[in-house]
Amino acid sequence: MVEFFQYVINGISLGSIYALIAIGYTMVFGVLQLINFAHGDVYMLGAFVGYYSAKWFHFTDKPSLTNLILVLIFAMVMCASVGYIIERFAYRPLRKAPRINLLITAVGVSLLLEFSGQLIFGSDPKFFPELYIPQTDLSIGEIKINPLQVIVLIISLILMGFLQYIVFRTRVGRAMRAVSFNHDLASLMGIPTNKVISLTFMLGSALAGAGGVLVGIIYPRIEPMMGVMPGLKAFVAAVLGGIGNIAGAVVGALTLGMAETFLVGYWASTYRDALAFALLIFILLVKPTGLFGTNRTEKV
């Protein structure tokens, strides 16, 4: 039983990181109907921005929670800029092109980020600095909880709450929802759709960047190819929850995170990467709209 709860906790902390990436996927899909393959690589960039900023600003000398938050904010800002650049120069010129061209471009951007990452950062793994060293160990009964996991969970919850606020309580958020509902109609209503799409990319990328820093805190091994699998899995999580639905993405990510830790814990770790795809195929065949998605009818 202790083992079981341990897995649940690990699953939630893994799932909360998937959730941060999945939100970006689902938001971008909402406004552009595009699977942004490069999203997982923006998350990788977030981890590396965190790594280098912690080094340059000498945050590792005196680890504290403030340093962690500063690094987090810096990474989010940098990733938001990268997100803007990607959208502006790779995706915007193709707004009127067939969707498959957009998909190919997304694959291209993803590969470009990965392999330039290898060129710039080096292909060998690096170890994320300890930004915050907790003093005490938390434990409930026999279940041990790594305080870092709690911090990661709290930070991701705060970020998700903030996003929820932006999307549902502000004018910009309303514009985003309008664009994702109907792009052309939104622009007829005077919504600057290009700006809204850019902003959506920036928000999604900032969250992915935060995910990169947070994953560096729990699993300190970072490398330029680290974004590929979490990126694809976060997409699966987004589909699981119903693509375009932010709350659904979070639920999907937590489900996937737990399913993975259970699989690794009780059965075999080698099948881990296949699980997400098997789940994706199953979901798409049984209920393509996901758990919370709405049906869209296709018009001729």
Binding site: A90, L94, L102, I104, T105, V107, V109, L111
Partner: peptide, 10 residues
């Protein structure tokens, strides 16, 4: 390759 792919699509 990847750069080629992006430029080609554009």
């Amino acid at each position: 390759y990847s750069f080629l792919l992006i430029v080609l699509m554009l």
